[in-house]
Simulated assay, not measured.
Amino acid sequence: MRSYRRYRLLVPALLCALAALAARPTAADKEPGGGGDTGISAEVARLYEDAAVATQQYEAGRKEADEQRAKAQRAEALLDIQRRHIAGLNEDLGRIARAQYRSSGGLPVAAQMILADSPDDLMRGQHAFSQTNLAVNNAISKSRRAEARLTADEARAAAEWQALEKRNTQLAGLKADIEQKLEAARSQLQGQADASVAAGACRGAVRLDQPETGFTSAWVAPVETYELSASYGSGGARWSSRHTGQDFAVPIGTPVRSVGTGRVVRVSCGGPFGIEIVLKHAGGYYTQYAHLASVAVDQGEDVSPGQWIGQSGTTGNSTGPHLHFETRVTPEMGSAVNPVSWLEARGVAL
C-alpha cells in the first residue's frame, strides 16, 4: 500500500524548490568525519522529507508535462488540418484561374466595351469580372492567413516540446541528486546502528524534527509509505516456529510512528530483533517496533498517535531493510496476536 500527497505547483517554484532541496548539505558535508552519532539520524530524517517533497513535485511536474505533451499533440493535429486547408485553397485558386481563362475574364475593360453587344451585356460582363477578382483576392487572403497561422503554430509546438524536454531533464536530475544524498546517509546510519548492536549499547534517543501530523484518528499505521512483506503466522527458516508480526518493507531511515497513544516501556539493542522499541497502550496491549536503525524516544516517555519514535533499518536477524511490527498482550515475546486484525479493529486498514 502506498500513500502519496499531491500538490499542483507552478513550474518556476517547483524547480527552485527542488534545487534548494538538492543543494542542502548532508551531515558528512557539515561535520568532519561524517558528523556525530545523532547528526546522521537527523540528517536522514530531513533528507527523507526532502525526498518525499521532491517526489511529490516531480510527480506534479510529470502530470503537467503530460498535459503539455497532449497540448502539443493537439497542435500537431491542427497543423495537419491547416495543411489540408491550404492545399484546398490552392486547388480553388487553380480552378478560379482556369475559369477566368476559359471565360476571357482577363480581357481589358476597353476590349470588353468594344465587343459588348449591349450595355446590359457590358454590365453583366463587368459584374462577373468583379466577382471573379473578388473570389481570387479572398482565396489568396485566406491562403496567406492560413499559412501565417501554420507558421506560428509550428513554432509554438516546437517551443512546447523543447520546454517539455528541458523541464523533465531538470526534474529528474534534481530528484536523483536528493535520492543519492539520502542513500549515502542511510548507509552511514545503518553502519552506526550495526556498531551499536555489536556493542550491545543503544546510542540513546535522537530527537527528530517531525513535521506537524494533524492526525484526527486515534490509531495509525506504523509507517506512512510501505509494502507489506512477511505476514503474521507465516513460516520460514529465519524463525524458530512462526512469524510473530507483520513486516513492512521500507528503506533504511524511514520514520517509524507510534500506532497510538502509549508509553515507552522498552528500548533495547542486540538479540534477534536488533534495535527495538516496545510501547504500552490502553487496554493492556503492547506494540513492538524492531530491526530499527535509531530510536527517537526514551524509556518511560509518553507518545501520541503518529509520533516518530525511531527510524527503520535492518539490525538483528534481518535479511533486508524493513520494520517488524508486533502486537502483544504482554511486553515479552510469545504473547503476540495478529497485528493486522488488531489494527483493522481500530480503523487502520493495511
Rank of each mutant, 00 (worst) to 15 (best):
Phe325Cys: 07
Val297Phe: 10
Glu154Lys: 14
Arg24His: 14
Arg24Tyr: 14
Gly33Ser: 09
Ala282Ile: 05
Ala199Trp: 07
Glu332Met: 04
Glu91Phe: 09
Ala184Cys: 01
Tyr285Ile: 02
Asp37Phe: 08
Ala17Ile: 08
Ser304Gln: 14
Ala54Glu: 15
Ala139Trp: 03
Ala54Trp: 08
Pro12Trp: 14
Leu14Ser: 11
Arg95Ser: 11
Val278Phe: 00
Val223Gln: 11
Val265Met: 03
Val303Leu: 05
Ser268Met: 09
Ala52Thr: 00
Glu301Ala: 07
Gly36Asn: 10
Arg24Gln: 15
Glu179Asp: 15
Ile81His: 12
Tyr4Ser: 13
Gln162Asn: 09
Ala70Cys: 12
Ala19Asn: 09
Thr315Gln: 02
Pro339Lys: 01
Ala97Met: 12
Ala139Val: 12
Asn138Asp: 11
Ser341Asn: 05
Leu350Asp: 07
Ala60Ile: 01
Met333Phe: 08
Tyr286His: 03
Pro32Trp: 12
Thr330His: 03
Trp161Cys: 01
Pro119Val: 12
Ala139Pro: 05
Val265Asp: 03
Asp209Ile: 04
Gln180His: 04
Ile252Ser: 08
Gly334Ile: 06
Gln73Glu: 15
Val259Leu: 09
Ser318Phe: 13
Ala75Tyr: 05
Ala296Trp: 02
Pro321Ala: 09
Ser3Met: 04
Leu343Ala: 05
Ser143Phe: 03
Asp194Trp: 12
Glu332Cys: 01
Gly125Tyr: 04
Thr225Leu: 02
Asp120Glu: 15
Leu79Gly: 04
Ala28Cys: 15
Ala152Val: 14
Trp161Leu: 01
Leu107Arg: 14
Glu344Tyr: 03
Thr55Gly: 09
Ala296His: 07
Ile140Gln: 08
Pro12Thr: 05
Ile96Cys: 11
Leu47Phe: 04
